[in-house]
Design a protein around this nucleic acid. Structure first.
Lengths: 193, 193
DNA sequence: GGATGTGTTCACAGATCAGTATATCGGCGA
DNA sequence: TCGCCGATATACTGATCTGTGAACACATCC
């Protein structure tokens, strides 16, 4: 990506997230990034492609943040709720909710690339939760993973209400994981009396 | 509201929810409701007012549904999770997530009437949870209420992913309530030995 | 019978939307 | 020095957006 392309992508990300996708025109993005509309179209082809790039970059940044939270080297049980730690950092600079949920709200056409990106992101998180839960020795990893996903999305969705729910939600998530681990350990004892 | 006004409101609700607010023009709403654009503006004044009406009517419908779920006469403990029962019915015909979260995503201006409506709706639910939790004898009603709200919004937010999370979430909510009631009962016993 | 209110028809304003055409400029490698 | 490529400037298309103006039809009520 050329320097102009990076400036365009950065301006698009800021504007799309803060003002909404449909509400932001390409003219504004070009003006904000100090670039002509012609350059924008030479780089990205269409607004839809620019939207897809916006979501793709955001997804990558989010996954890197989660990976960083996993890399600090916690115990397997603590690692399960690492995405909630990442969310705490993320929320400090992203207070307008989940960009993917917002994108789905604005772009109802299921064939739009944003749909795949949004769905893939959530499913990635769901699978990550399940994998981490399995590794930590939880009793029903799939069920726990979907519960953690709901908690995660709920914390994101209630964010624009300016009611602090993240700390309470994180605590509940940790509690669920610990309880699930205990269940598994008890079952293991019961089966080997 | 005149007959034409009702038709307009009905068409607007259907279109706004299924396609998004910004993406739907007043011309389309007028055409769908068999009405001229002039009549639409005579009835509602502006698109923003029509949007506000759309959200207000939806809010009323939702609150009636929750009230109906409460009126079936369950035990106080079961009543706490009645909104989740209402959500099950609601989801059958509303599979595009929460209209208020979606509206907030599209209308970032905090002075837009949609913001107050959305915030008020969520706070109403939060207060309802707290009130029901208190009535059921839960140990920390405020904390439990915010956890239930997060679960509720999470179940709504994950709905467009076509991954069934509602039943698991409802079960978790019931489990939290029962556990909270047990805590309170145990504390009561401890304090009166 | 006139007044009022609801709704219709048609035309229009002014802005903004995504996307394109054409011509030019400057740097960089061959 | 010559082409090539990223980028620029300016102007434009055709569609769509919200919102308005003015004249007219039809009903109901006083």
């Amino acid at each position: 990506m050329t320097p102009a392309g990076r400036r365009i992508a950065a301006a698009a990300e800021e504007l799309f997230y803060s003002r909404g996708i449909t509400a932001v025109g390409v003219d504004l993005i070009a003006e904000r990034s100090g670039v002509t509309k012609r350059t924008l179209y030479n780089q990205f082809g269409s607004k839809d492609h620019l939207v897809a790039t916006y979501l793709r970059e955001r997804d990558q940044r989010w996954r890197s943040l989660v990976q960083a939270a996993l890399d600090v080297g916690e115990t397997p049980v603590e690692a399960v709720t690492a995405p909630f730690e990442a969310l705490r950092t993320w929320s400090e600079t992203n207070s307008r909710g989940c960009a993917f949920i917002n994108a789905l709200a604005e772009l109802p056409d299921p064939s739009h690339p944003a749909h795949r990106l949004a769905t893939d992101q959530k499913l990635w998180l769901l699978n990550l939760f399940e994998e981490l839960a399995t590794r930590a020795g939880c009793s029903h990893p799939a069920t726990l993973a979907s519960q953690l996903l709901v908690l995660h999305e709920g914390a994101l969705a209630t964010q624009p209400l300016s009611v602090d729910t993240l700390s309470t939600t994180t605590e509940l998530a940790r509690c669920l994981v610990r309880s699930s681990v205990r269940d598994q350990e008890r079952q293991a004892l019961d089966h080997r009396p």
